[in-house]
Nucleic acid binder design. Structure first.
Lengths: 108, 108
DNA sequence: GGAATATATCAAATTATCTTGATATATCAA
DNA sequence: TTGATATATCAAGATAATTTGATATATTCC
């Protein structure tokens, strides 16, 4: 991603929406230590099973986590690429990164 | 922010919520070129005045932008520190950044 | 002061998201 | 094959965010 090509706005909005909920941020925090199975997340978060499942799906649909089944357990892990892109977005968007067209169009 | 101290979850959730809307991301994109007055944003975004005002307030309440009045105009600008913290969050949360406690507690 | 312009706020209606409880599906173990 | 466990999905209700139109406030210009 170059400094003039910000990611697709819709895609970025989905990342940020996925991260806009405290329960999901807790999940992300837990996954930052490595892959975890749903049952462990449920234990730690002490939250209704369907609710956890809903939040995991939200994170997955946004592309922030991946899952894999192993027998009767399902493991979730953070997607490093998505986190890289988010970090890149935040740093690319900082004023001063753009070459041209920094003039104001009015009221100046 | 160290690699073991993620930012306050509630504060992070507010950042991400502020960035979870396409209109607000457009605003951020426009402000990435530098400070802009509300009237210019309104022109470019072609959106109802109260709606733009609502979204600017949302960004401001989350700490992502600041405003200053100059006569009859109000200028908004991105807060670089907040963007830095977001980038830092995204990179700190990546697996492998944490020293200890990476073992799984169950199903392993 | 009064009109005009820029912006913010408010209330109501709409829409989206979240939670809960119930049920479905998949896997394993006996 | 039956029962148990892990996880996902669904539908209904609860809550929260967004949009719209109306009105309020601040500033400038005459």
């Amino acid at each position: 991603m170059s400094s003039t090509t910000l990611p697709n706005i819709g895609r970025a909005a989905r990342w940020f929406h996925a991260l806009s909920d405290e329960t999901r941020l807790e999940i992300v925090r837990l996954l930052s230590h490595g892959e975890r199975c749903v049952c462990e997340l449920q234990d730690v978060l002490d939250c209704a099973q369907s609710r956890l499942s809903f939040h995991l799906k939200t994170l997955k649909d946004a592309g922030l986590v991946s899952d894999r089944r192993d027998g009767r357990w399902v493991y979730y892990a953070l997607n490093r690429e998505a986190l890289d892109e988010i970090a890149e977005f935040a740093s690319d968007v900082k004023p001063g990164k753009h070459a041209g067209s920094c003039a104001r169009a009015c009221c100046g």
